[in-house]
Design a protein around this nucleic acid. Structure first.
Length: 803
RNA sequence: GCCGGUGUGUCGGAAUUGGCAGACGAGACAGACUCAAAAUCUGUUAUCCGCAAGGGUGUGUGGGUUCGAGUCCCACCACCGGCACCA
C-alpha cells in the first residue's frame, strides 16, 4: 500500500483553510495560549530548510495545545521593510513594494505547503500603512515622553549601506548585515533613550522564563557596573571627574588618563606647552576605525599633558595627566584615575611611561604584574583605609568622599541610546517636522499614517542624506504647532521598528482605532511562548522589551514584559557541517523535500534531527528514516483489528508513550518524543496487530508532528469524527506506566554478573537470595567476604566483597 | 581577558535524583522475497582477546569522591557562541 503524500496533504490543507480551523477564536472564556515565532523577512531567496525548524516546533506545541482545549493564537506576518529588498529594487528598477509583495507570495506558498497551523486571517505586514501607522504612533508617544530626541553625534556609518547603524548592528567593527567597513561620522540623528530602561531591562529578567544564556547575554550587553565618581582638582582650578569601580584603591592612583576627545583639552589649550604633540595624537586616534581600535594585543600609546596636573583628593599629591585612546570618551566620564598596581591596562601604561606603581592591596608582586584578583586582600599604604578589607575600604572611602563633597556612588552602563535614523528609503517615515520657530514637532496623530511618498530613485546618497531628501514637494510642509513653514524629517526608521511591537498587533490586527483593543490586549497578553534566534538577543529581543515597557508605563499594555517564555532553536547546517549559504552551495530547498517525501516527513525530520536548541547538520540520507516511519504508520491499517480498549500487552507502552510525548513536547525535546513513537510502533509490530483504540491514540500522539497522514488514517479507518474536530489529547494512567516485571542487574563489586527478571514489588531479601543463587554470581563471589549489599528497587543489586 | 555552552560508535544523536552507556534513526554487513534491481521484511553492528562460555577496555585528558561516575568535585585540553582597553 503505497502512501500518496501529495494527494493526502493537499486534501487536508484545503479542508483546514476552508473551515478556518486554525483561526483563534474570540471566545475569551477559554484558556488562551499565544505561541509566537519571529516573523520572517521575505527575502528574494525564498526559504531554506533552516527556516521551518522553529515554525514546525511551535506548530507542534500549538497543535497539541489545541487538542488539549486551549484557545490558541499562532500567527504569522512579514517583517518586510529593509535593505536587501531596497537594494534589489534599485538594481532591477522595480518598486520595493512590488518586490516585497512578490517575495511574500513565494514565502507564503512555501510555508503553507508545510501544513503549519498559522492563523492566516491575522497576517500582518510591517510595510502596510495600516500597520506602520501604529509604529509611527508609538514613535510620537516616545517623543512626547522625552524618550526620542535628535542629537548631533558620532555615529557608526556603514560605507556600503550608506547608512548609520545602531551599536547593536556593529559586529567586530563591521556591518552586521553586509560585513562592510564601519567608520565614524558626526551626524544629527534620532535617538531613543533605551538607557532610561537599563535597570528594569536587567531586573525584570527575573519575571520571565528565558534560557540562561539569553539572560546572561542581555545582562552582559547592558553592562551594569557599580562604582563611584570622584572629583580631582587640577592645577588650573578645573575639576576633573573620573569614574571608578575601585574607589578603595584611590591612594594607589599615580596618574590620570583622559580620552583624546575629552573637552577639557580644548579649554586648557593655552596652558599646555606640548599642544602640537597632543593635536597629533588626537588626530591619529580619530582616524582609527572601530576595527583598528579593537585590535587585540595593542601596545599602549599616549601623550602627557604638559602644564597641567591633577591633585589626588585623599592625599593632595600632584599627579600627571595623560591622554590615551585606551580611555573611551563614551563611557563613564571619559576620564580615569590610573592605579597601575591593581589594573592590567594601567600597569602596562605605567611600565611604558615609567610611572610609579604603588601597592595598596597586599598579596601580589605589583612590580612584576598588576594584582587585580585582590577582592579578599587587605589595604596598605592607604592612610585611613589601612588594614581594612577591600569591601570595607570601598564603603568607607565613598562615605568620606560624599561627606567631603568630593565624590559619590554611581552606577554606569555599557548600553548606549539607540540610534534610530536610517538614511534609506524603504522604512517607516519618521512623523516629525522641523519648524524654525518651534523646533521638532510631531505631526498630528489624525494625519497618521504618514505614507512613504513614491520617489523616482531609491538610490542612497553619498552625502549621507536619505533619498527622501530630494522630494522637495513632500518635504516642505507647515508646522502643526504654529502653522509656519516647516520641513519634514527625511530619515526613516530602522528595520527593528516594526518588529518591536508586532506581537501586539496580532491580538487585534484589523483595528483601525487603536494598535489593539484593550480587551484583546488583556486577554492575549503576554505571549506565552516565543521562539527565536540567538542572534536577536541584543537586538530585536532587547528593543521590543524596551518598547513594551514604555507602552506599559503609558497604560497601553497590561503586562510589564511582552514574552513570558523564550526558547531558541539551533541552526540547521549544510550537509558538510557549515552554515547554509548560497555562496557555499550547500542550501537545501524545502520545496524539493516536500515534493519527494511530503510535508509530514519533512516536519518529522526537522524535529528528529537533534536537540532543538543545538545546531545540527542536514542529512539527505537520514530523512528516509522519517519517511519509512510515516509509511509504517500508514500501513498499520492493514493489521487493524476491532477493539475499543488498549490491550494489556500494549497497555504500559501506550501509557508511557502518552506521558513521554506530552512532556517532551512541552520541554522542547521533540527528537525524543518522536523516538518514543518510533519505539512504540516497533512494539506494535511485534504484536503484529493494532486495534482501533490503539490506532486512535497513536494517531493523536503523532498528529502534532505529522498532521496530514494522521487525519487521513483517522478518517479512513473510521476512528472518529477527526483529530482536530474532536480536540481530545489522551490521558495516561500513572499506575499503568509500570511493567509487572522488571529486569534487575546483579553486580559484584560494580561489575555486571547477571540479570534477573523479577516482579516489580520484590523485596531486597528475596532478590538477594535469587541473585546469590546465580551461577555466575556464585563464581564471582567465590569464598570472599560480603561486606555490603546494595539494593536499588527496580534497578539493581550490588554485592560488595573483599578477599 | 570576561560571560555562556559543547566534547559519547562510522554519522545524527539518547541516557529522571549518580544505578544495564550507545535508546531512536541513518549507514554498513548478512539473509528472505525477486530472473534481476529497487522497495519491503528479518538479523548483526563500540572495541579488543576467545571456537564458545566468558573476560578485558571504553563517554576529550589527568586526578579525586563513591559499593557504583557520561552524570558530582579539582586541574587541564580542544572547539563553538557572545562581549571586549567599559576603568
Amino acid at each position: 500500500m503505497k502512501y500518496n503524500h501529495k494527494k493526502v496533504e493537499q486534501k487536508w490543507q484545503k479542508i483546514w483553510e476552508e473551515k478556518g480551523v486554525f483561526h483563534a477564536s474570540e471566545d475569551t472564556s477559554k484558556e488562551k495560549f499565544y505561541a509566537l515565532i519571529e516573523f520572517p523577512y521575505p527575502s528574494g531567496q525564498g526559504l531554506h530548510v533552516g527556516h521551518p525548524r522553529p515554525y514546525t516546533a511551535l506548530d507542534t506545541v500549538a497543535r497539541k495545545r489545541r487538542l488539549q482545549g486551549y484557545n490558541v493564537l499562532y500567527p504569522i506576518g512579514w517583517d518586510a521593510f529593509g535593505l536587501p529588498t531596497e537594494n534589489y529594487a534599485i538594481k532591477n528598477h522595480i518598486h520595493p513594494e512590488i518586490v516585497t509583495n512578490k517575495n511574500i507570495e513565494r514565502f507564503k506558498k512555501q510555508i503553507q505547503s508545510l501544513g503549519i497551523s498559522f492563523d492566516w486571517s491575522r497576517e500582518i505586514n510591517t510595510t502596510d500603512p495600516n500597520y506602520y501607522k501604529w509604529t509611527q504612533w508609538i514613535f510620537i508617544q516616545l517623543f512626547k515622553h522625552g524618550l526620542a530626541y535628535k542629537k548631533e553625534m558620532n555615529v557608526n556609518w556603514c560605507t556600503s549601506c550608506k547608512c548609520v547603524l545602531a551599536n547593536e548592528e556593529v559586529v567586530n567593527g563591521v556591518c552586521e548585515r553586509c560585513g562592510s567597513e564601519v567608520v565614524h561620522k558626526v551626524k544629527s540623528q534620532w535617538m531613543l533613550k533605551i538607557t532610561e530602561y537599563a535597570d528594569r531591562l536587567i531586573n525584570d529578567l527575573d519575571l520571565v522564563e528565558y534560557p540562561d544564556r539569553v539572560k546572561a547575554q542581555q545582562k552582559n550587553w547592558i553592562g551594569r557596573s557599580t562604582g563611584a565618581e570622584v572629583d580631582f582638582t587640577t592645577t588650573t582650578g578645573d575639576v576633573l571627574t573620573i569614574y571608578t569601580t575601585r574607589a578603595d584603591t584611590l591612594y594607589g592612583a599615580t596618574y590620570m588618563v583622559i580620552a583624546p576627545e575629552h573637552p577639557l583639552i580644548d579649554k586648557w589649550a593655552d596652558r599646555l606647552t606640548n599642544m602640537d604633540e597632543i593635536r597629533k595624537y588626537q588626530a591619529s586616534a580619530a582616524r582609527k576605525s572601530d576595527f583598528e581600535r579593537t585590535e587585540v594585543a595593542k601596545e599602549k600609546t599616549g601623550v602627557m599633558l604638559k602644564g597641567v596636573r591633577a591633585v589626588n583628593p585623599v592625599n593632595n599629591k600632584e599627579i600627571p595627566i595623560f591622554i590615551s585612546d585606551y580611555v573611551l570618551v563614551s563611557y563613564g566620564t571619559g576620564a580615569i584615575m590610573a592605579v597601575p598596581a591593581h589594573d592590567t591596562r594601567d600597569w602596562e601604561f605605567a611600565k611604558k611611561f615609567d610611572l610609579p606603581i604603588i601597592e595598596v592591596v597586599k598579596g601580589g608582586n605589583v612590580q612584576e604584574e598588576a594584582f587585580t584578583d585582590c577582592a579578599s586582600g587587605i589595604m596598605v599604604n592607604s592612610g585611613m583605609l589601612d588594614g581594612l578589607t577591600v569591601d570595607d575600604a570601598k564603603k568607607k572611602i565613598i562615605d568620606w568622599l560624599t561627606a567631603e563633597g568630593k565624590g559619590h556612588a554611581k552606577v554606569n552602563y555599557k548600553l548606549r541610546d539607540w540610534v534610530f535614523s536610517r538614511q534609506r528609503y524603504w522604512g517607516e517615515p519618521i512623523p516629525i517636522v522641523h519648524c524654525e520657530k518651534c523646533g521638532y514637532v510631531p505631526i498630528d496623530e489624525s494625519e497618521l499614517p504618514l505614507k512613504l511618498p513614491k520617489v523616482e530613485s531609491y538610490e542612497p546618497t553619498d552625502n549621507g542624506e536619505s533619498p527622501l531628501a530630494k522630494m522637495t514637494d513632500w518635504i516642505e510642509t507647515v508646522c502643526p504647532h504654529c502653522g509656519g513653514k516647516a520641513i519634514r524629517e527625511t530619515d526613516t526608521m530602522p528595520q527593528w521598528a516594526g518588529s518591536s511591537w508586532y506581537y501586539l498587533r496580532y491580538m487585534d490586527p484589523h483595528n483601525n482605532k487603536e494598535l489593539a483593543s484593550k480587551d484583546a490586549l488583556k486577554y492575549w497578553s503576554p505571549v506565552d511562548w516565543y521562539n527565536g534566534g540567538m542572534e536577536h538577543t541584543t537586538l530585536h529581543l532587547l528593543y521590543s522589551r524596551f518598547w513594551h515597557k514604555f507602552l506599559y508605563d503609558i497604560g497601553i499594555v497590561p503586562t510589564p514584559e511582552p514574552y513570558a517564555k523564550r526558547t531558541s532553536h539551533g541552526m540547521i547546517l549544510g550537509e558538510n557541517g557549515e552554515k547554509m549559504s548560497k555562496s557555499r552551495g550547500n542550501v537545501v530547498n524545502p520545496d524539493e523535500i516536500v515534493e519527494e517525501y511530503g510535508a509530514d516527513t519533512m516536519r518529522l525530520y526537522e524535529m528528529f534531527i537533534g536537540d532543538f536548541e543545538k545546531a545540527a547538520p542536514w542529512s539527505q540520507a537520514s530523512i528516509k528514516g522519517c519517511r519509512r516511519f510515516v509509511e509504517r504508520f500508514w500501513n498499520l491499517q492493514s493489521v487493524l483489528i476491532d477493539g475499543d480498549k488498549i490491550r494489556p500487552e500494549l497497555e504500559s507502552q501506550f501509557n508511557k508513550a502518552i506521558k513521554k510525548v506530552g512532556e517532551d513536547i512541552e520541554n522542547i525535546k521533540f527528537n525524543t518524543a518522536i523516538a518514543t513513537l518510533m519505539a512504540l510502533i516497533n512494539d506494535i509490530s511485534n504484536v503484529k496487530s493494532i486495534n482501533k483504540e490503539e490506532l486512535r491514540v497513536f494517531s493523536i500522539l503523532l498528529n502534532p508532528f505529522a498532521p496530514h497522514v494522521t487525519e487521513e488514517i483517522y478518517e479512513i479507518c473510521g476512528l472518529g469524527s477527526g483529530i482536530i474536530a474532536e480536540q481530545s489529547w489522551p490521558e495516561y494512567d500513572e499506575s499503568k506506566c509500570v511493567d509487572d516485571s522488571v529486569e534487575i542487574v546483579v553486580q559484584v563489586n560494580g561489575k555486571i554478573k547477571a540479570k534477573l527478571n523479577i516482579p516489580v514489588y520484590a523485596q531486597k531479601d528475596y532478590v538477594l537470595e535469587l541473585a546469590k543463587a546465580d551461577e555466575n554470581v556464585k563464581k564471582a563471589v567465590g569464598n570472599m567476604t560480603v561486606i555490603k549489599e546494595i539494593f536499588v528497587p527496580k534497578k539493581l543489586i550490588n554485592i560488595v566483597v573483599k578477599p
